[in-house]
Amino acid sequence: MTLYYFHLRDGEDILLDPEGRDLGSMEAIREATLREARSIISSDSLEGKVKLSYRLDVEDESGKVVHRLQFEDAVSLQRGRVPE
């Protein structure tokens, strides 16, 4: 069983993962990270306050960061204006 820890960073603050998760491949890690980001952004949208400055750092048991996702990169963001 290989455990990976998903830590949520927000500027200076960090929310540490107290449990870790058993994931088998880089693809599974990438997918889990993306789902995490989207789940949080989705819920925050309901409240009207979205923080794209969050970052998820995935570390292995030795503390090495194996994957990183900036929330801004978790969604395809569109601004600008829809034509009349």
Binding site: L8, L15, D17, P18, E19, R21, A32, R35, I40
Partner: peptide, 22 residues
């Protein structure tokens, strides 16, 4: 329950659960 199990039962994800518990 683990945070993962709590996530499974609420349709959320573990980090999201972690943040919400905080």
């Amino acid at each position: 329950l683990t945070q993962e199990e709590l996530a499974d039962s609420t349709g959320l994800t573990p980090v999201h659960v972690n943040r919400t518990l905080k």
